[in-house]
Write a protein that binds this DNA or RNA. Structure first.
Lengths: 340, 340
DNA sequence: GTCTGGCACTCCGACCGTGCGAGTGCCAGC
DNA sequence: GCTGGCACTCGCACGGTCGGAGTGCCAGAC
């Protein structure tokens, strides 16, 4: 009935006002700033119901209302329209990202761009190794018994590892090894590289077999298994700026969690390309992220997300705008990486 | 005379007490905690002189004294003994850094280690490209007319660039190009790589000349010229923690300056390996760094610093301990990188 | 039944005045 | 040249007051 309808309208108004003013919002202010067509007294009744249902709360008696996590959730799911980016913002994205020279540069620019657009902390994950395929494997001899492996993936990531070999290696063997590895792994996804090893060992000429075993063991251990995924973080200054009030007192635990990377990494990698995922406050379970929201999305082609990116900020954030920004940036980055 | 002597002793005591308590220190407290052999009244006279000379100041009448930048400077230059690291700290350094798998990992661990030891923001510069030498140049064909160059330096850095070529390239040419580039640049310092190009162009077979020109132009432009140097930053949570009081109100400009990188990069690259450099407060000129001190040192062999590392914190920091930590870490990292 | 205006009540936060304590500068005496 | 004593200053913590914003409830209007 029209009853419930209006109540949701009230909730939406509360969220909007609170996000923009940071003051608990009262019935009078609501009636003034939004034309809900009813008097403050009626709004008070609605607010009482919303509070009972757990969507809003008051910091103390005789203060206005503030949305709860549950309130934000409802707002994000049902009450907010996606806010299209302005032309200026669209152009800013292109201007910012074009002219990047390599993957590191692209992701560095992306994180700065996101931080600037949303005025929040931005987080970008390097393309997941396990979902990447081998474009080239280079073997360089760095000393008599040490080799450096350089892995180049189709997503532009470059990873290197030094391998200590039990015996000295001659230059010819290095060249053979290179050819062997490349023909075995070229185009193979890293997640499936493990399966190729037995074949490889079998077909390898006897005198190389030990070497191949050592090298492929290192490859699997350090590159495939641990999901060795990197994160770029930027815009932490935004945390210190306005949000000092949002995170009661100190932002330090949050900064620690961000530097830790592992927590955020786990959250950010659970994404699909295309659908923006919002996690609000306590939904994050992890202690340091209580009071914080994440807005994340995958980038890359829809079928195959290369990695995730997003923002971290106080639960009191402008979700529609930030969701739009995150989505637009991800889309553009995805295109950019697909080209190269 | 013994007069001046004692006055300096008073200054040292003030710095030490202020650093550890964060309270302006008064004559009485000084007399109690340090045996200077004189009464509070005498100390008061000394303090009046020190204030006149600009080494200390009082936040307001009837408060204790606080060191000025000039006071810290004198303390660092003449009054502080280098504090040897504890055995536990020494072992922590080894435990922390051993087992790193590549350069990225080494520097990442270093920055975390430094941040933990000093409880300040830590900063580590990647080995300067211009002072590095080429260990290997790899050329990989990524599409008909595009090549990826991968540069591996003797310091373990790996940089890649994609080069668009005007015409399609066949696989044979790629192999030739690889051999050509490596024989021309192997072991050459990047700062001197520019000089090799004319030679290279001359000796190159005619059918490769255009390709070589394009490729070496990209190499020089993107890798040699701009001093494209990276920075790893960590421990920013330390800023938010205690130092909220030190940087009046907000740490946000400082965080911005750190993310900007360019300012810090300039400061950190002016270092010698071996001698720890301390910059205090206003000595940093740059606005955001007023109120902050940098403790930096170069790492690598004494004759040839690979890069710089150090910490950024409030001027009110424990200089002797932090200087010792920075020096010890730099030394260890230098060894580690020399080995590989 | 639903909305509205009015009213009494609550309670936070800003404001203000006071008193305490820490610290200083100065001075006379050793 | 050092010391103890003394008067003075000043920031800050403490406690009480007051105003305003906001609420809940109720009786009456539509």
């Amino acid at each position: 009935m029209a009853h419930d309808e209006r109540r949701l309208e009230v909730l939406r108004a509360i969220v909007q006002d609170y996000v923009s003013t940071n003051d608990p919002v009262g019935s009078k202010a609501l009636a003034d700033r939004h034309d809900l067509g009813v008097s403050p007294a009626t709004i008070r009744n609605d607010m009482a119901v919303l509070e009972e249902q757990g969507y809003i709360t008051q910091p103390h008696t005789s203060a206005g209302r503030v949305p709860t996590d549950k309130g934000y959730r409802l707002f994000v799911d049902r009450l907010s329209a996606v806010k299209p980016l302005s032309m200026a913002e669209r152009r800013a994205i292109e201007r910012f990202l074009d002219g990047a020279v390599d993957l590191h540069d692209v992701l560095g620019r992306t994180v700065r761009l996101l931080a600037q657009l949303t005025r929040q902390v931005a987080v970008v994950q390097y393309p997941t190794l396990s979902r990447s395929a081998v474009r080239h494997l280079e073997v360089v001899q760095v000393s008599a018994s040490r080799l450096m492996l350089v892995l180049i993936t189709d997503t532009g990531r470059v990873e290197q590892r030094v391998v200590d070999c039990p015996a000295d290696i001659d230059a010819g063997a290095v060249a053979e090894l290179r050819t062997l590895l490349n023909s075995a792994f070229d185009g193979v996804k890293l997640s499936e590289a493990g399966g190729k090893v037995p074949d490889l060992l079998e077909t390898a000429p006897a005198h190389l077999r030990g070497l191949v075993a050592t090298v492929s063991a290192t490859l699997l251990e350090t590159l495939v298994e641990p999901g060795e995924d990197r994160l770029v973080i930027g815009g932490t200054a935004n945390l210190a700026r306005g949000s000092a009030l949002d995170f009661q007192g100190t932002v330090s635990p949050l900064l620690e969690a961000l530097e830790e990377q592992v927590v955020v990494l786990r959250l950010i990698s659970e994404v699909d390309a295309g659908t923006v995922l919002v996690r609000i406050g306590e939904e994050n379970a992890h202690e340091a992220l209580t009071g914080a929201s994440l807005v994340t999305v995958g980038y890359g082609s829809p079928e195959r997300a290369l990695g995730g990116l997003g923002i971290v900020g106080p639960t009191r954030m402008d979700y529609p705008t930030n969701m739009a920004a995150v989505r637009a940036v991800a889309r553009y980055v995805g295109q950019l990486l697909a080209e190269s």
